[in-house]
């Protein structure tokens, strides 16, 4: 059996699963709109949380939060479950699937069979949606937002990825589905305004003594990165740079990508609310996204040199500082428009 589920690739797995699921229930909301409504923009640089021995840097809000925020906002009833027993985790999933509901699963990348081997790191925060089962082969049909088409996974592999191990984020078969939907979507205009305000608050409300989150985090990374080469030596410093670029957003959107997605959201928001200025803010965050790309590009030139292009950790620090100043100003002013 296979549900009538339209698979559309997305920039980010969690947004993508939500967007595809809502479409299944007849509600058309774009990926950027979901990201924006859930106030998904964020930044954190936390030296005390480590992945592969290196500080974790993130460009968006914590996994799982988007789904709960968006469903609360729109009035969808959702269920989320975690399991200790692997058989029960699969049996329950099949039951929900057979009742005609697509099931979202949080999985680890490492054992996903259709992902290139080089990408299969121990990253336990990917989202996929189970939309059917091939009775002949016993395989499940999967909508993975980072794949261009529907894919398949065996029961054995699905158990492995749903119960991916790992110190920082071990998985407990976490799955979620939409239980019931409202007759129609509530008026989005007040929600959009509220979500923008909230996101501005999330990025700028932290006191100065808390350096890890929001724009503070960007300033913090800008200060820290200057000393990396001296503190860690060139090799380790390079690996830390590489981690910032790839580790957390292994497949999908990097730091710049979320800024562009927010830009797309603001453009849609301008249309829906009639607040023209939001278009200007969309352009501003697009320029900031371009700076994030510039940062990534220069970082890559440090660990993979090309002739005639030499950048230093001081240069990176400068770009980050510039981004931090611009983002701080951006959120503080955006707040006043809505």
């Amino acid at each position: 059996m296979e549900l009538k589920f339209e698979h559309r690739p997305a920039a980010h797995c969690e947004n993508g699963v939500i967007s595809n699921m809502l479409r299944f229930y007849g509600f058309e909301l774009s990926e950027p709109m979901i990201f924006g409504l859930a106030s998904g923009m964020f930044f954190s640089h936390t030296p005390f949380v480590k992945m592969a021995g290196m500080a974790v840097t993130s460009f968006r809000t914590f996994p799982g939060i988007l789904f709960s925020r968006i469903s609360k906002l729109l009035g969808f009833k959702i269920t989320t479950k975690r399991y200790l027993n692997e058989k029960k985790a699969i049996a329950d999933m099949e039951k929900v699937l057979l009742s005609g509901k697509p099931v979202g699963c949080v999985v680890g990348m490492y054992y996903l069979p259709y992902v290139p081997l080089e990408y299969r790191f121990h990253f336990n925060g990917h989202n996929i949606c189970i939309i059917g089962k091939d009775e002949q082969t016993g395989e499940y049909i999967v909508s993975d937002p980072n794949a261009v088409e529907k894919v398949r996974i065996t029961k054995k592999d699905l158990i492995k990825v749903r119960f991916a191990k790992g110190g920082t984020y071990p998985l407990l078969g976490q799955m979620y589905w939409i239980e019931s939907v409202p007759n129609e979507l509530p008026d989005l205009v007040p929600m959009i305004k509220k979500a923008i305000k909230k996101n501005c608050w999330l990025m700028t409300s932290q006191p100065k003594w808390l350096p890890y989150f929001g724009v503070n985090g960007i300033y913090y990374l800008s200060r820290r990165i200057k000393n990396w080469e001296k503190e860690m030596g060139p090799r380790k410093a390079s690996l830390n740079l590489a981690q910032i670029i790839r580790m957390l957003e292994e497949i999908g959107t990097g730091g710049a990508g979320f800024r562009y997605m927010f830009g797309a959201f603001l453009q849609e928001a301008a249309q829906k609310t009639g607040i023209e200025e939001l278009n200007d803010y969309s352009k501003r965050i697009t320029d900031i996204g371009d700076l994030w790309r510039d940062f990534a590009y220069k970082a890559a030139r440090i660990f993979k040199k090309r002739q005639g292009e030499t950048y230093t950790y001081d240069d990176l620090s400068e770009v980050l500082y510039k981004i931090a100043v611009l983002e701080e100003k951006f959120y503080k002013e955006l707040k006043t428009v809505v």
């Binding site: 920039a11 950027p32 259709y114 290139p116 980072n146 261009v148 497949i251 990508g257 562009y260 797309a264």
Partner: peptide, 13 residues
């Protein structure tokens, strides 16, 4: 690395 796989990136531009 995406060569011969179904994986791709999506970006907004």
């Amino acid at each position: 690395y995406f060569k011969d796989t179904v994986m791709r990136d999506v970006t907004y531009a």
